[in-house]
Nucleic acid binder design. Structure first.
Length: 227
DNA sequence: GCGACAG
DNA sequence: ATCTTGTCGC
């Protein structure tokens, strides 16, 4: 029997230990999609928190990859034990997302996270960490940049501009809608940059953010509101 | 030492 | 991320 991805490491860690884990786990990343990758279901992941409350409500919404219609959602509420620290977001959000993942029946072929993939100071954003632990192809699609610089970006939908950081191309700014700020796309695990950009555009036919993210965001907010 | 800083 | 009213634009 192989080890379970979820048990690669514990979550009771200090920020310093978290950084060491990122540097070690980074070596296991595969920045290439599996040969013949077929995506029939794509999921969005997100969490919702409340000021003055330790509980985090997280979940996934699985969409049919063609119609972009939801086919399943799964959520969980878990106490957030790690603070928000730029660069260590996955240690705050993944515990609740893993709990939600275990409740999901129709596991997706691809997950799009709300945050960075390798466009990260140590090339190990939440999409990398999540994809690795779940053993699923993943993409990071963030609303703002954590690291790196982007050059001029065309106005039309579909235009892209590289994200450069320390001499490397770590992602792409992608205009998903004309006249609106771009989103920042980078590969997570079992993924490359061209495929990541292709999928983000495919699941963002109308609005700035992917339908996966929009559905996940609404779902976890409803979870929190409901208690 | 001084800024920057996903969600 | 969350807290919050109105306001500008298609």
């Amino acid at each position: 029997m192989g080890e379970r991805a979820e048990s690669l490491h514990g979550w009771e860690v200090t920020p310093q230990e978290a950084v060491a884990l990122q540097n070690a786990l980074r070596e296991r990343l595969v920045l290439q999609p599996p040969a013949g990758l077929r995506v029939s279901h794509v999921a969005g992941a997100d969490i919702s928190t409340e000021t003055g409350n330790v509980l985090g409500y997280g979940g996934f919404v699985v969409l049919d990859a063609v119609s972009l219609r939801p086919v399943e959602h799964a959520g969980a509420a878990v106490a957030l034990s790690f603070p928000y620290v730029p660069g260590l977001l996955s240690f705050r959000e993944l515990p609740v997302l893993l709990a939600a993942w275990n409740r999901m029946v129709q596991k997706p072929d691809l997950v799009i996270f709300d945050g960075q993939g390798i466009a990260h100071p140590r090339r190990f954003g939440i999409a990398c960490h999540g994809g690795l632990l779940l053993g699923v192809p993943s993409i990071g699609c963030a609303k703002s940049l954590l690291v790196g610089k982007v050059g001029p970006l065309g106005e039309a939908r579909g235009e892209t501009a590289e994200i450069h950081h320390r001499g490397e191309v770590v992602g792409m700014a992608v205009r998903t809608r004309r006249g609106v700020s771009p989103v920042y796309v980078s590969p997570g695990h079992l993924m490359d940059l061209p495929t990541a950009v292709e999928w983000v555009l495919r699941v963002s036919p109308r609005y700035r953010e992917p339908e996966t993210t929009r559905h996940a965001h609404r779902f976890v907010n409803a979870l929190r509101t409901a208690g």
